[in-house]
Design a protein around this nucleic acid. Structure first.
Length: 306
DNA sequence: AATCCCGGCAACCGCGGATAC
DNA sequence: GGTATCCGCGGTTGCCGGGAT
């Protein structure tokens, strides 16, 4: 049979924690640790709380080195980067921000950062016919923090040498429709849909700092996503250039059958020429003090569905 | 001054994977 | 191997305080 019941839900206290409860929990964990069993902890500590509640309180508020208060610009950028790359994986994002909790980041995103992020959001589409069989729609979303939105809006797309029969159609603005209330699904879908091999696939790239910031940090994630996409759709490599920073957006043929390349290999090593590039326009980017962030997604659909 | 509205945040809920029995 | 529970996560709710009316 299974384990003993978690807790008697009728007798546990709910709602905000009192200072007394906080100190009791803190003191107990300080002396005894969590013991690896949150369910038993409140009883041992003399708290009329559910174990889950104790765990939450400890992790989000009481444990040492928790950072509360305003998020820095760097933290903002990291959150945007990761959100664009992996979606609402708050625990993963929190792991990159020492002292911040997933709950904190989630709340911060939902109440403040999302608005900031969406404020400079722009929409670009590209339809790419690949060997006449597939139509690829590229949703390019340029989001910027602070004042960089106008510069992002002026992004242009350039078609570089293409060995394939690709045709491109692109525009801006328009049918973003539900973005205001569905940014989460849109953005996380961009990362997750592709990885799941869904028919409508999407690809996301982490934000790129126009000032030449740390571009490589999350590219492994991106390459994994892109590689899966390429495997499913038989695409070649694509390359995108943002304000002088080149981003390899899809895996090469020899990487199509692996989600992550073997140790030592990376998609940066790809030698094939880029098929498509997106080039930052406007004032030339790099000189701005505001950090521009970009997000794009790619979705695919069969011609007979459109 | 009273009421309403809204934003921020702490806490709860429910789900899925992991694990113990 | 099957079942019950634990654990951690993400989504959602509800309370509270401050600003607007």
């Amino acid at each position: 049979m299974g384990r003993a019941p978690c807790c008697d839900k009728a007798s546990v206290k709910k709602g905000p924690w009192s200072p007394e409860e906080d100190s009791t929990l803190k003191e107990y964990i300080h002396k005894n640790g969590t013991g690896g069993n949150w369910i038993a902890l409140p009883h041992k500590a003399g708290l009329k709380r559910c174990g889950k509640s104790c765990r939450l309180r400890w992790l989000n508020y009481l444990r040492p080195n928790i950072k509360h208060g305003d998020f820095s610009d760097d933290e903002d950028r990291i959150i945007c980067n990761l959100f664009a790359t992996i979606g609402s994986r708050w625990s993963v994002i929190a792991a990159q921000l020492p002292g911040r909790t997933d709950n904190d980041i989630k709340n911060y995103w939902n109440t403040k950062l999302k608005k900031k992020f969406m404020q400079g959001l722009h929409h670009y589409t590209i339809h790419i016919n690949h060997h006449g069989a597939k139509k690829m729609q590229l949703l390019f979303l340029a989001a910027s923090s602070a004042s960089a939105s106008s510069e992002a809006a002026s992004l242009s797309l350039q078609h570089l040498s293409s060995p394939h029969d690709y045709s491109h159609h692109y525009g801006s603005g328009g049918s973003y429709g539900s973005a205001n209330n569905s940014s989460t699904s849109l953005l996380s879908g961009a990362a997750g849909g592709l990885l799941n091999g869904e028919h409508h696939q999407a690809m996301s790239a982490s934000c790129l700092d126009s000032g030449g910031g740390s571009l490589g940090l999350y590219f492994d994630e991106l390459c994994a996503a892109a590689t899966t996409s390429a495997h499913g759709q038989g695409l070649g490599m694509e390359s995108f250039v943002f304000g002088g920073n080149q981003l390899l957006a899809a895996g090469a043929g020899n990487q199509l059958d692996q989600q992550y390349g073997p140790a030592g290999s990376s998609c940066y090593d790809e030698e094939k020429p880029p098929l498509v590039s997106l080039t930052g326009g406007g004032d030339g980017a790099g000189g701005t003090s505001a950090s521009s962030s970009f997000f794009y997604g790619i979705s695919y659909s069969n011609d007979n569905e459109s």
